[in-house]
Deep mutational scan, measured.
Amino acid sequence: QVALSRTQVCGILREELFQGDAFHQSDTHIFIIMGASGDLAKKKIYPTIWWLFRDGLLPENTFIVGYARSRLTVADIRKQSEPFFKATPEEKLKLEDFFARNSYVAGQYDDAASYQRLNSHMNALHLGSQANRLFYLALPPTVYEAVTKNIHESCMSQIGWNRIIVEKPFGRDLQSSDRLSNHISSLFREDQIYRIDHYLGKEMVQNLMVLRFANRIFGPIWNRDNIACVILTFKEPFGTEGRGGYFDEFGIIRDVMQNHLLQMLCLVAMEKPASTNSDDVRDEKVKVLKCISEVQANNVVLGQYVGNPDGEGEATKGYLDDPTVPRGSTTATFAAVVLYVENERWDGVPFILRCGKALNERKAEVRLQFHDVAGDIFHQQCKRNELVIRVQPNEAVYTKMMTKKPGMFFNPEESELDLTYGNRYKNVKLPDAYERLILDVFCGSQMHFVRSDELREAWRIFTPLLHQIELEKPKPIPYIYGSRGPTEADELMKRVGFQYEGTYKWVNPHKL
């Protein structure tokens, strides 16, 4: 086992960053958080920038500027975001240094004079007029057009580079997404736009490419001749908990499936790229999406959770019991969808996408189930092999396979070949997804960000279904809070070829 401390991990990262040409360590950078008073800024962006600063992973002359409508001070920003920093008493001095680099400007999102004030403020910072500028839009999409237009007109660096990070949702359907994309691309070049999907920053999602293309053993079996089906799962054990009003506007397909799960599907299904260059990788992902037809209604199961009468606390409440959810809402909190990649490698292999709230566990994984062994000599005792990439929690890679049961006879039983990170790298604290992705933006690497043509294809696949749901308002199937979801989803999976045995229990190697 390799035991690495946080300091050692960050030392390795620093070495990698400083050796590259793309990370300008000594240049002045300004990180501007648009929507600095909001939840995302408070819980994710400010803490992430602090962790990067604490670990010495930001360029040395980096300033952080918050911008929002609320009249706040840096002290206010500190008060609301610091509880999420997880700072230790030993880091007190470092924390003071961090907040000394912070400033805040209040202004409207659609007022040109406010942006001119913001620009004057940035120019007044040390070497601010020639600094590289990175704008993070932690804002609702309704203000994107006004904000990007004003940034472009008043706040661009004339000497350094300018980059803009856009948070999902990128529209509600193909038409609104196209409108937003066309607007942003009329102001910024594609190499300046970073559409963030934080799932692409997760260690195991990034590991998929290495697993596939750096190991000879997987190449020959990664196709329709050997793989019976692919299941991509995202499960949350909690409901909307008072935030249903926002969720109800989008629903589970827009929230998770059309982005996170579809991105994971691309990494499983794509061909080997010409290189690890950002556009070479994204070219292959677009090719996969172009091979997927629009979702067919007979390959869809929609569910909505109801309270568990035997549960406790939140578990007793259904989705419609959330006071922020519109009365009688038919918005799905669970969806199972089957897609097919219609190309030579994957023809006929079902890709089953499942996601839901208020389920029995927290889990995100990719599961490849292989065909049955031909010419069975073990009297149907063999179960199908599976390769599982567990994204969260407890990152893991393992192969479910058959071995001989101890004893006199040739009785096979299920076991696993474990390729888990935790076994080799004991207690290594890896940077989280937002840390990686923000560092990628500083480096100018777009590999783990969504390109406009990729986004367009993703919406093309799901828009007809979303429009049909909005028009017909089908009643989702009720499922109990804390269950596996509607049984109809299991029946759909069985119908397209997935075999669920229920006889195997994964042993978490992190707890051995």
Rank of each mutant, 00 (worst) to 15 (best):
S483C: 05
F334E: 01
Q380V: 09
L261M: 07
P326S: 14
F378M: 06
G375D: 13
H467G: 10
T503A: 13
Y434L: 04
M408W: 04
L261C: 08
L430W: 13
V397G: 04
K473M: 06
V338R: 07
R451M: 02
M402E: 05
N259M: 14
E395P: 13
L289E: 00
V507L: 06
T324W: 11
L289A: 07
D322F: 04
C382T: 06
S483D: 10
I438N: 00
A364K: 05
T330V: 10
R390D: 15
P393R: 03
T463N: 15
N308E: 09
A489M: 11
V338L: 07
I480D: 11
D310V: 05
I438K: 00
H448W: 13
M493Q: 11
I438L: 14
V256Y: 15
V428H: 10
R362L: 08
V306M: 12
L359R: 00
K287M: 05
N411G: 07
K429H: 12
L320Y: 13
R354D: 03
N385V: 03
K287D: 08
N411S: 07
P393D: 09
I438G: 00
E416W: 14
D440E: 07
R436W: 11
E416F: 12
T420E: 11
K287Q: 11
Y481Q: 10
G328A: 04
E284P: 01
G307F: 03
E361L: 06
L320H: 13
V349D: 00
H260G: 15
D255W: 14
G497H: 13
P393I: 00
Q468K: 06
G497D: 13
Y504E: 15
G348E: 02
Q369D: 00
Y305P: 02
F334G: 02
P350Q: 01
Y305E: 01
V288N: 00
R484P: 07
G422T: 11
S329F: 00
A358L: 02
T333V: 01
S452I: 04
N411D: 09
Y319V: 01
D376L: 13
L262G: 03
N343G: 05
P309M: 10
E454T: 11
R354L: 14
R390C: 14
T503R: 13
E284M: 07
A336P: 01
S452V: 12
N298M: 05
R484D: 14
D279M: 08
E435I: 07
L320E: 08
V496W: 11
Q258N: 14
G482Y: 02
G356D: 03
E416M: 10
E416C: 13
D280T: 06
D490A: 13
T403L: 12
G422K: 04
E472K: 08
V286D: 04
M493F: 07
L267R: 03
E344K: 12
I389Q: 00
L359M: 09
E491D: 08
V295E: 01
V295H: 03
D347W: 11
E413C: 07
E386K: 03
K290C: 05
H260E: 15
V507W: 12
G303Y: 00
Q381F: 09
S452K: 03
P309D: 11
Q392P: 05
V281R: 02
V300A: 08
K429Y: 11
N343P: 02
Q446C: 05
A297N: 12
K429S: 13
N299G: 04
N360T: 05
G375N: 13
V301K: 04
Q263T: 14
L437E: 08
H510T: 09
N277A: 13
M493L: 13
M447A: 13
G375T: 14
V366K: 01
S275P: 00
A332C: 14
M270S: 04
P431E: 13
L320N: 03
A433L: 15
H510Y: 11
C382G: 12
G444S: 06
E457D: 06
P350R: 00
L417I: 13
P476R: 01
V496P: 11
F442P: 00
I389G: 02
V268I: 12
V428D: 15
Q296E: 08
R495F: 07
K511A: 07
L466T: 11
N427I: 10
V288C: 13
E294Y: 08
Y434M: 13
N394A: 14
S293D: 05
R495D: 10
R345W: 04
Q296F: 06
M270C: 10
E361K: 14
R362D: 08
F498A: 15
G356Q: 00
E344G: 10
E454G: 12
E361G: 15
K475E: 09
T324Q: 11
W506H: 04
Q381G: 06
D283M: 05
Q263M: 07
P474S: 13
Y398S: 09
T420S: 13
Y504K: 13
G307K: 10
V286I: 10
R282Y: 01
G497L: 14
G497K: 14
N298V: 09
W459G: 14
T330A: 06
Q381N: 13
R362K: 09
T399A: 12
S278Y: 05
L430D: 11
L359Y: 00
V325P: 02
E501I: 07
H510S: 07
L455N: 04
R424S: 14
K357F: 07
Q258D: 04
P323T: 10
V325M: 06
K473P: 11
R367N: 07
V428I: 05
V450K: 15
L368A: 04
P309C: 10
G482V: 01
P474G: 12
S452A: 06
R384S: 14
D453H: 03
S452N: 15
F442W: 11
N385I: 02
V507P: 14
N298H: 11
G313I: 09
Q263Y: 14
S483R: 04
P273D: 02
P406T: 15
R327L: 10
T403K: 12
G407V: 10
L466M: 11
N259G: 15
L339K: 02
D279N: 05
F442G: 00
V373P: 13
C382I: 13
K405E: 14
L430H: 13
E365L: 02
P486E: 01
G356W: 01
A332N: 06
Q296N: 08
L465F: 08
E413P: 04
T403I: 11
L353M: 09
D255P: 00
F351T: 01
K505T: 12
T399I: 11
M264K: 03
V256W: 14
L471G: 06
L439Y: 06
Q380G: 12
F410I: 12
Y434E: 15
C443P: 02
E414V: 08
T399V: 04
S293Y: 05
R362Q: 07
T330H: 10
E314Q: 10
N427L: 11
V337M: 12
T399Y: 08
G318E: 03
V428L: 12
T330W: 06
T324Y: 15
G307W: 02
Y425D: 15
K400C: 15
Q380L: 12
P464L: 04
L471F: 10
E386Y: 01
F409N: 14
F378G: 01
Q258M: 15
M408G: 10
L465E: 01
V349P: 01
K404C: 15
D453K: 03
D321S: 09
V281D: 01
E470K: 02
G307T: 05
D432Q: 11
F409W: 12
G348K: 05
T463A: 13
Y305R: 00
P474I: 14
